[in-house]
Amino acid sequence: MERYPHIYGSDGRIHACIAELGIVLTHESGFHQMDVRGDMFGLLAAHPLRPLVTLHHLEITEPIFPNRTALSALDHLLQAYNIDPHRIFQQTVCYDRWFSWTISISWGYAIQVHGRHVFLPDAIRKPATYIPWKKGGENQLYNHDTAEHHPDPCRRPVVFYMDSASSGRNGIKSVYKIMTMENCTFDSTSPRKLEEIRVFSHKLEVDIKQLQAPRRHCCDVLRDSSAKVMELAIRECKEEEFIRMP
């Protein structure tokens, strides 16, 4: 503290001390400094394939669930986290062959349903729902792959937020419901007709192999998505199975 009084914040001073020791840091993508403002949805809906470690600045950013306070939203997230902490925010993508939908699951948080098939590299990009930490830094570059967040909500994927999560003898069930109703026109093949998505999975036990070489899980549409409820199952991909657009 005496040598670096000009550095603002404890993290900057800790970095200076580590630099003096000659230690090289390894970036762990489960740490989230969250040096951005606004809606964290884009970052959390396309989380890296690593266990969640930290979330910073939640008192500055918008609540991670709509229609809640920051503290209430965090308590709500803990319902799923306490059931399956290693799977929280882990992104899984599957394709519905009946309606040509692309479904991106951020487990325990939210599901995005595109009304068309989207290539996997595009489905796992982070929607830029947030803004730079420093004011006037609109042209700031991020160290992750961002995607356009369309200004017209009717042209964005339909979002379903986690409503509940429970664990039983046959595995884990999490329920996601649509919480924002935009005034958009749609037909019988649009995902906007859905009101609820149910996801079935088993507890994710992360071992050394998974940490060294993480692999995205696969998911299946369990039945025809013709009603107001869609059911999905998350599972490990088979040895030579690919996640790809039909």
Score class of each variant (00 low, 15 high):
162 M>R: 04
161 Y>Q: 03
48 P>R: 11
7 I>N: 00
68 R>P: 00
109 Y>D: 02
221 V>Y: 05
244 R>G: 01
129 T>D: 07
50 R>F: 05
105 I>S: 03
84 D>P: 07
70 A>K: 13
173 K>P: 01
79 Q>L: 02
183 N>Q: 13
55 L>S: 05
135 K>C: 04
201 S>G: 02
119 F>K: 12
221 V>S: 06
244 R>W: 06
103 I>E: 05
140 Q>E: 15
23 I>K: 08
244 R>T: 12
216 R>Y: 01
226 S>I: 12
33 Q>T: 04
33 Q>E: 11
245 M>K: 14
11 D>M: 05
80 A>G: 15
87 R>W: 01
88 I>V: 10
173 K>T: 13
200 F>W: 13
234 I>Q: 02
58 L>Q: 07
214 P>Q: 09
37 R>K: 15
139 N>G: 13
200 F>T: 07
196 E>F: 00
227 A>L: 09
192 R>W: 14
207 D>Y: 01
36 V>Q: 01
123 A>V: 07
60 I>P: 00
98 W>C: 06
242 F>A: 08
231 E>R: 13
149 H>F: 15
147 A>P: 02
186 F>E: 10
229 V>F: 07
14 I>K: 05
47 H>T: 02
77 L>K: 01
237 C>M: 02
65 F>G: 03
43 L>Q: 11
128 A>C: 10
232 L>E: 05
155 R>M: 09
87 R>C: 01
230 M>D: 03
30 G>T: 03
198 R>E: 15
49 L>E: 13
205 E>Q: 14
55 L>R: 03
177 K>Q: 14
140 Q>T: 15
218 C>L: 08
86 H>W: 07
169 R>S: 12
87 R>K: 06
24 V>C: 01
245 M>Q: 11
141 L>M: 07
169 R>M: 10
71 L>S: 12
219 C>T: 04
112 Q>A: 15
199 V>K: 03
135 K>V: 06
210 Q>G: 06
233 A>S: 15
109 Y>P: 04
107 W>T: 03
245 M>T: 14
79 Q>W: 00
116 R>F: 08
182 E>V: 04
132 P>D: 10
203 K>A: 05
203 K>V: 07
230 M>E: 10
183 N>D: 15
205 E>H: 14
233 A>I: 02
228 K>M: 08
72 S>I: 03
138 E>Q: 14
230 M>I: 07
35 D>C: 02
33 Q>S: 10
132 P>R: 09
169 R>Q: 13
69 T>C: 03
72 S>E: 15
240 E>A: 10
78 L>N: 05
215 R>V: 06
5 P>R: 06
110 A>W: 01
61 T>A: 14
63 P>A: 11
241 E>G: 08
3 R>S: 09
38 G>P: 04
36 V>L: 14
94 C>M: 11
25 L>S: 08
220 D>M: 11
227 A>E: 15
116 R>K: 15
205 E>A: 12
170 N>I: 05
245 M>G: 00
35 D>F: 05
211 L>D: 01
197 I>H: 04
116 R>H: 13
80 A>F: 07
101 W>D: 03
189 T>L: 08
6 H>N: 10
12 G>L: 04
75 D>R: 11
3 R>G: 00
191 P>N: 07
211 L>T: 06
